[in-house]
């Protein structure tokens, strides 16, 4: 059985009729942590949204293969059920739907079987303790009135509960203080196994310190211009993106 989890082949994507991605190629194997770095507007968020096939972005060319299956044109929910999760940069607020109910429902959709309430709640409690989340948030409406940090932790909680094969973290570290970043990387470590993979999209390298990163890709103007090891991230932190423009 192939070890390849995700493969993006020559992907071109437009947003509002503007060409954003201009030929992305990316291969992620099971057990790997990949990082995409790049300046503002380079297409990082577009890449993440395109994998989940957000209808606000239109694919012009190229293919996305997940576990040997072409998912390029699947609907977002179908892709999610295939096992891809995305942590949002700006998670949506859903008034009137509690975190517990939401997760229980999502879990039943992703795992394609009914959720046992008691076990589910225990699992939830455990993860929330690890992520230093206020247990009262469980009965609050999803993301409504949550602080920036609470929203991001909630995304990580969802990742842990839904336990996908591939987790895409879109700027999950932005706007977080040092302690929160530590908690988030702890969440990622808890999640990570040999069978799954993580794709981290970020601006800064702090979140990478405690993670065992395999590949760093530099995205500039819709193309991956360089791929390297974890050291590449350090280099970019020091020198910026100027050299790639």
């Amino acid at each position: 059985m192939s070890n390849t989890l995700l493969e993006i082949k020559d992907l071109y994507v437009n947003a509002e009729e503007k060409e954003i991605l201009k030929g992305i190629n990316l291969k992620i194997n099971k057990g790997e942590i990949h990082v995409i770095m790049g300046p503002n507007g380079s297409g990082k968020t577009t890449t993440a949204n395109s994998i989940l096939n957000n209808p606000m972005y239109t694919k012009q060319k190229g293919k996305i293969i997940f576990e040997g299956k072409d998912i390029t044109n699947l609907k977002t929910d179908e892709i999610a059920r295939e096992g891809i999760f995305m942590s949002f940069q700006l998670p949506e607020e859903i008034p009137g739907v509690s975190v517990t109910n939401f997760l229980k429902y999502a879990k039943s959709k992703i795992s394609k079987k009914p959720v046992k309430i008691f076990e589910f709640k225990e699992e939830l409690k455990k993860y929330m303790e690890e992520l230093k989340m206020n247990p009262k948030n469980m009965e609050r409406s999803l993301n409504v009135g949550f602080s920036g940090g609470e929203k991001k932790k909630n995304e990580i909680l969802q990742m842990l509960v839904l336990n996908p094969e591939l987790a895409i973290l879109d700027e999950t570290d932005s706007g977080l203080d040092v302690d929160a970043i530590k908690t988030v990387s702890k969440g990622i470590q808890m999640f990570k196994t040999k069978k799954n993979a993580v794709l981290i999209i970020t601006h800064n390298t702090k979140i990478l310190n405690s993670l065992d990163v395999d590949y760093v890709h530099v995205l500039v103007d819709g193309k991956i211009v360089k791929t390297g090891s974890a050291d590449l991230a350090k280099e970019i932190e020091e020198k910026g993106y100027e050299q790639y423009k």
Partner: peptide
Amino acid sequence: SDKTIFYLMSRGMSEEDA
């Protein structure tokens, strides 16, 4: 909002369910 629907769909719900 379309964004909210996308968010829920990314969690495995169909558009109708969302």
